[in-house]
Amino acid sequence: MRKVKLRTIYPLTENLLEQLAAKDKTTYLHSLHVAEVASLLAREMGFVGEERALYEAGLLHDIGKLYVPQELLFTRRVFSSIERLEMQKHVSYTYAILTYHNYPHTLAEICFQHHERLDGSGYPRGLRGEAITLEGRILAVADVFAALISPRPYRGALSPRQAVEILHQEVLRGRLAMEVVAALVRKLDECCVLCGKHE
């Protein structure tokens, strides 16, 4: 795999990502894409001071998948309810890894929130509204977008326009932050390039 130049803050991050790449190349590449998109969205929204933290959080948000069984990571079928709960544990694993390695609490918390949703339907804590930080909201949108436009074992990649339509639906359902999705739409072409995809 080609060596990627990372803008990491913490030296351990590269080592953790190397472990992730060895186990699951798809999640590794997804993490690189999420990091780039999240930091771009922070800049676009005027939160320049948050850019580096969001980049690092994007790199690390799925690091807990190191502890998810490989048969779940690579399955091509719909998860059973038990399997879905097992996969969802990756968020808690991520938080535990970052806490164990003494990453800042604020960084671990951003990662912990990337599957939370504004209407309380997310996991692992079912946070709602203002309980989800701005950084958590940005990371959630970057995560969903990067996942949608990339192929997965169980489906092909969606087009950027299809991905944006899904993001808009999630905003209408009260799940994702409207202002973050609006920022992504303004920077759609750049986000696509960062994810290795072109319109």
Rank of each mutant, 00 (worst) to 15 (best):
M1F: 08
K3P: 11
K3Q: 12
K5E: 10
L6K: 03
R7N: 14
P11F: 09
L12W: 04
E14Y: 09
L17A: 10
Q19R: 15
Q19T: 06
Q19D: 11
L20Y: 01
A21I: 00
A21P: 07
A22D: 09
A22Q: 13
A22S: 13
K23I: 02
T27Y: 08
L29H: 10
H30M: 03
S31M: 04
L32R: 03
L32S: 02
A35D: 01
E36I: 02
E36Y: 07
L40S: 04
L40A: 02
A42T: 02
G46F: 05
V48Y: 08
G49Q: 07
G49H: 03
E50M: 14
R52G: 01
A53D: 06
L54Y: 00
L54G: 03
A57V: 04
L59V: 01
L60W: 04
H61V: 02
D62K: 14
G64H: 09
V68P: 08
P69C: 06
P69S: 04
E71M: 05
E71T: 01
L73G: 06
T75C: 09
T75A: 12
V78H: 15
V78N: 14
F79N: 07
S81M: 13
I82E: 14
E86P: 09
E86C: 10
E86H: 12
M87D: 04
Q88T: 00
Q88F: 14
K89C: 08
K89R: 15
H90A: 06
V91P: 02
V91D: 00
S92C: 10
S92L: 15
Y93I: 05
T94V: 05
A96K: 13
A96N: 12
I97W: 03
T99L: 13
Y100F: 13
H101M: 15
H101W: 15
N102Q: 11
H105C: 07
H105A: 14
H105M: 12
A108Q: 02
E109Q: 11
I110M: 06
C111G: 09
F112E: 00
F112S: 02
Q113H: 11
H114R: 06
H114E: 02
H114Q: 09
H114C: 05
L118F: 11
L118R: 07
G120E: 04
S121W: 04
L127D: 01
E130K: 14
A131C: 11
T133W: 09
T133L: 12
L134E: 02
L134C: 04
E135A: 13
E135D: 08
G136T: 03
G136R: 02
R137H: 05
L139H: 04
A140T: 10
V141Q: 03
A142N: 05
A142T: 03
D143Q: 06
F145H: 07
A146R: 01
A146P: 10
I149L: 05
S150V: 00
S150N: 07
P151S: 03
P153W: 11
Y154L: 09
G156A: 10
G156D: 11
G156Q: 11
P160G: 07
R161E: 12
Q162I: 01
Q162N: 09
Q162F: 09
V164G: 10
E165W: 13
I166W: 07
I166Y: 09
L167E: 00
L167I: 05
Q169S: 15
L172D: 12
R175A: 12
L176R: 06
M178K: 15
V180F: 01
V181I: 02
V181W: 06
A183V: 03
A183R: 03
D189L: 13
C191F: 10
C191I: 06
C195L: 04
G196Q: 08
E199W: 15
E199R: 15
